[in-house]
Design a protein around this nucleic acid. Structure first.
Lengths: 344, 344
DNA sequence: GTGAAAGCGCTAACAG
DNA sequence: CTGTTAGCGCTTTCAC
């Protein structure tokens, strides 16, 4: 089995030209006469030729691949983000090479190396919390790179995302505006999760600014799971003096809280108000609809892809670009109830 | 800028051996003396060398990439599936190159060509409905390939997935067992969606077997969206004689139906029972919890990855492997109500 | 415009 | 065990 599939030489022979001309016809079409190009294209058809990007990539040419390292794909909001990212990339001729590390930052470095060994032209990471060696390698190889999802004005690499601190502030402000004074929180573990940590800090900053505080007993911690969130919520709502409002670190936790409150026979928002962060698909359609802060995963994905493509094409070589995609407070049914002084 | 990064020759020089030995040290470690390997590894460290898989792939060797063509990533259940698929692939040393076509089968062929041009070692497709040219190209290139998500005993390529016809039968049987005679359906468009079509056919087969029928007015069509499902559900429930049970083509539609019924002040399952298909993450935790047929995305993803890796490694060359991953009826609150004769 | 030839980074014989 | 040699499929000078 000498040669399995048609290569550029077979095409050249079939078209009666040299391999060089075939190559040029693909890469610099303007340097080849129109009728020659036509003959070549016909030869491609006839031979069933499919270009070999691996062979191209070897010349330091484009591999046409972007690497993405993501904690997990199994998450509605990342799925949303990644879909926007890939399809925008595809519009620019790039295909995405994806790896997941399951929130293990240590393995992220290895994944990066693997991606680099595939000679991806650029790398996208989720969030800004990465190991030093990851950052160092990125710098050493001068790999075009963008951090997606979080905005931070001090980021070491380009970033496109939401300001999670501000998201926390917005939702806290909203809850405070409804007159709540007895507020509980259910957040994911903050360590190793800069998103959650920033959101929580934003919430606390506003609460304290209002002269209130959230006692430790009302700060609950839940993993990213409706089931577990329900357990946390139940514990909070069955206290002697349950909070009148629950601020949840994300919409999954908030949805779990809504279900649990309903299962306990409580009315939302009258008995307890629930707010989330994220505006995941479905949050606006559940009953009661969930008040939350929209993170605009779609827009972030698109902008991140555009930025990365720009960097790869040599724009933006001077400075770091940091894009804060705006947030949108979504006031919906789950908090639509004003507490009066006596209730508080 | 002659050579930007260390190549195998730099490593060879640094280690005081030949390039061939370096190559061997990676690819056939047993054929190299231990201390030579150690020197080479140190040289790799010192030079910051990262292997170039593109250059390897050119030798007809492994590119280490698997191509995945998926309708969309923006979908909880696919996300689940793909996560299992990628991580299993990763265990076997493969990285996934992903493309999405947004349910446009025509563009699928182009995406396949693109993936092939990257010299992926295998291809995974979602479902079994693909254009003839897609199947033909796969056959022509003899590309290891597996269709994920659907099981069909007549499939043209390896497949791992659920028997959607049976899923439809299971849920219909369950609804019938609860005494319902006036049943409505809300399904996605069936054309171009073999999954939905098979499920629907399964439902209808059981309904007719029971001597019943579903009039056209009670066969509603909804896109994959909670919001749109709510609209469809409302139309059904506001009829003069609303159905006592709703069988939904997937859990997203079912969740929408639950929310809408609640918003209309109806009790589930007493006023109307709702059933889905899929058992998406969250379906068991919403209130009321949703009766559905579990599709086991996780297991499917893992088995599909293992099958594909096997095919790539030269097993299974004789026959087509078709794996039907078992279904699990999840009886939950949303249908937990027995209709008596008078109610029917 | 087009062809000939050199070479990208790596691997697979083949000797030694 | 290790080095030498000849490519893999393609792109890019440099001539013509």
């Amino acid at each position: 089995m000498r040669k399995k599939y048609a290569d550029i030489i077979d095409v050249a022979i079939a078209a009666g030209v040299s391999a060089a001309t075939v190559s040029r016809s693909f890469n610099h079409p303007d340097k080849v006469r129109a009728d020659t190009k036509k003959r070549i294209n016909q030869a491609v058809e006839r031979t069933g030729y499919i270009r070999n990007r691996a062979a191209q990539a070897i010349h330091g040419k484009r591999s046409g691949m972007i690497g993405l390292i993501v904690p997990t794909l199994d998450n509605a909001i990342f799925a949303n983000l990644i879909q926007a990212f890939t399809s925008t990339l595809a519009e620019h001729g790039f295909t995405m090479l994806v790896t997941t590390h399951g929130y293990d930052l240590k393995s992220e470095y290895q994944l990066l190396r693997s991606l680099l060994s595939h000679r991806v032209e650029g790398i996208a990471l989720i969030g800004l919390e990465h190991n030093a060696e990851t950052y160092d390698l990125l710098e050493l190889r001068e790999t075009p790179c963008v951090a997606i999802w979080n905005y931070n004005q001090l980021s070491r690499i380009h970033c496109v995302g939401s300001d999670n601190f501000e998201a926390g502030q917005q939702i806290a402000d909203h809850i405070l505006s409804k007159g709540h004074k007895n507020i509980g929180t259910i957040f994911p573990q903050l360590a190793g999760n800069d998103r959650a940590a920033a959101r929580f800090a934003g919430v606390i900053s506003k609460i304290e600014e209002a002269g209130l505080k959230i006692p430790n007993e009302l700060r609950s911690q839940s993993i990213y799971s409706i089931k577990h969130a329900r357990i946390c919520c139940r514990a909070l709502l069955q206290r002697d003096t349950p909070p009148t409002a629950l601020i949840c670190g994300n919409d999954v936790i908030a949805q779990g809280s809504i279900y649990e409150a309903q299962a306990l026979g409580m009315k939302i928002p009258q008995d307890v108000a629930v707010a989330g962060i994220g505006d995941f698909s479905g949050s606006g359609e559940i009953y009661p609809s969930l008040t939350t802060v929209r993170l605009r995963a779609n827009k972030i994905g698109i902008e991140a892809a555009q930025l990365l493509v720009g960097v790869i094409n040599g724009e933006n070589t001077q400075s770091l670009t940091r894009i804060a995609v705006d947030l949108e407070l979504q006031e919906r049914e789950s908090t639509n109830f004003q507490i009066n002084a006596e209730n508080a």
